[in-house]
Every structure is written in C-alpha cells, then in structure tokens.
C-alpha cells in the first residue's frame, strides 16, 4: 500500500485523459462494430462500398502527392539552409518562419488561397486583366488539385523542421573521405549521402503523409461540393445522420482513418530507429 501511494498523485491527470482521450478512442473502435444498439459488422462491410473506397483512395492520393512534393521541395530548402552559415541570420529566420508556417493551416490557409487564386483572387485578376489567362479555370482550387497545392503550403515547412536535424548530422569528413578516394559529387550523393539520408527522408515523408491525411479544417473551408476525401466523409456521416443506410458509419470511417495512421506511424518509427543508428 505504501509503495502504491506515490502513484496516486497521477490520478487527476490519468482521470482526465481517461475521460477525454481514452474513452473517445475506445468509443470509436467499439462504435464501429455496433448498429442500432446491436453488435454488427454492417458498418465495417460498408467501408468496402464503392463510395468509401473511392474516397479513401482520393485521400491517399492527396496525402501521398502533397507529402512527396512537400518532402522534395522541403529537402531542397533544408539543404539550401544547411549549406549556409550555421548561426547566420538566414538560417535563423528560415527555421523560425517554418515553425510558424507548419502550424499555419485550417480556415485561415483556405482563405489565403481563395484571396490568391479564387474567382476574384488577386493573382487570378492579374492573370485575367494583364495577361488574359484564366487561372481560375472551372474552379480547380476547390477540388483535389487545389487541395494538393494548398496542403503543400504547410508540408514544405514541416519537412524543413523534421529533416534539418538529419542534414545537420552529415559530417564534412564523409565528403572529404569520399573526395580523397576520387569520388565525384554525383558518386558521393549516390553512394554515401543518399543511402545514409534515405531512411530519414522516407520517414519524414511518412510523417507528412499522416499530417495531410488527418487534416480537416482546410478542406472543410475550401471544398464546396461533395465529400471527396475521408475527413469530409466523416463530417458528412456525423452531420447528416444516415449515409449509405448506416447510423454508425462515422465510427467505422474514423476507425478506418485510425488504421491508416497507425500503419503509417509504425513504419515511421521503424525508419527513425534505423536513422538514429547513423545520424545523431
């Protein structure tokens, strides 16, 4: 009893988390297997419906493409930063700006792009009045293409933040050793730096994928018609009571999202473990 007493100090904290984090999570998992107050697999079966599968695929494509574009451009930016002075003003301001922009999402970001490329957006009007180009098109900004562009805006800074430490871990001696053995720049990247950085790069890409997959607010504010991606389909199932004839579909869709995120994050952890062997 005396040995257990100190652990009692954690009761408020654990109690709070139990109510507001564990109960909701468990409710999602259990709720996915309930329909009309009866245990049922009908919600899980509904996940294999064409509409849901197509939406999931859209989400995977959107998250994947914005993650890859963000990872490549973010890695380039991170490399441009790393090759500068380590304590220079440029590096400090770029990392500070990335810290802010990676958090910049949601409704605000959607409005930023509506003000830029929307029907009466600033760039759209410049294109229309000055160059006679119709940048607005048929409203691509409000569909999947637009979401990919808009998501890239917070993916690049996130990539810089998570990938910069790995680039910092590269040592000048590696390059010197390779050069003294007669390696060209291409050979150095192909055989030394590339393989060393690859796990970190892939791990960061997975993190970006999960980040985009979970994002809701930007899409909710931007997409005007239908529910092309999973988070919006969850909203639809939550607010309009019955989708595909299932009351508890929101729970099953949420479970579906948890499964994807857990798979991605597990791969991420495995890759990070591999990276940390080389780069500290």
């Amino acid at each position: 009893m005396r040995r257990l007493a100190p652990a009692l100090g954690l009761v408020p904290f654990l109690g709070f988390l139990a109510i507001f984090l564990l109960v909701p999570t468990i409710a999602v998992v259990v709720g996915a297997f309930v329909e009309e107050d009866q245990p049922s697999l009908s919600n899980i079966q509904a996940l294999f419906d064409d509409v849901v599968m197509r939406t999931l695929w859209n989400s995977v494509v959107l998250s994947g493409s914005s993650a890859i574009i963000g990872a490549v451009l973010g890695a380039l930016l991170a490399y441009a930063v790393v090759t500068g002075r380590p304590d220079g003003l440029l590096r400090r301001s770029v990392t500070a700006a990335c810290g802010v922009l990676a958090q910049f999402g949601g409704v605000t970001l959607a409005f930023a792009f509506i003000a830029t490329l929307g029907f009466s957006g600033v760039i759209t009007e410049i294109g229309r009045d000055t160059f006679g180009i119709d940048l607005f098109g048929s409203g691509w900004l409000f569909g999947l293409k637009g979401l990919t562009l808009v998501y890239t805006y917070f993916q690049i800074p996130l990539m810089v933040i998570v990938f910069l430490p790995s680039l910092d871990g590269m040592r000048a001696q590696w390059r010197e050793a390779a050069e003294s053995l007669g390696a060209s720049t291409w050979q150095f990247w192909r055989h030394v730096a590339g393989p060393l950085l690859l796990p970190a790069f892939l791990g960061s890409t997975l993190l970006l994928f999960a980040n985009a997959f979970a994002a809701y607010a930007t899409a909710a504010a931007l997409v005007s018609q239908g529910s092309p991606i999973m988070p919006l389909l969850v909203r639809n199932a939550l607010t309009s009571e019955i989708v595909l004839g299932q009351q508890h579909l929101a729970f099953a869709l949420a479970l579906d999202m948890i499964v994807v995120v857990v798979i991605v994050m597990t791969l991420y952890v495995l890759l990070v473990r591999r990276t940390s062997r080389w780069l500290r």
Binding site: V23, P24, G31, Y216, F251, M257, I258
Partner: peptide, 17 residues
Amino acid sequence: LPLTIPAIVLVVGLEGV
C-alpha cells in the same frame, strides 16, 4: 498519443462524452 489520433476521429468519439 493525441498526435497520432486525427482531430476528426477524436470528435466522433467525443460526441458521447
């Protein structure tokens, strides 16, 4: 843990709470 649970998922479970 909240980092890995999307807010949109949490909200589904939070309705009951």
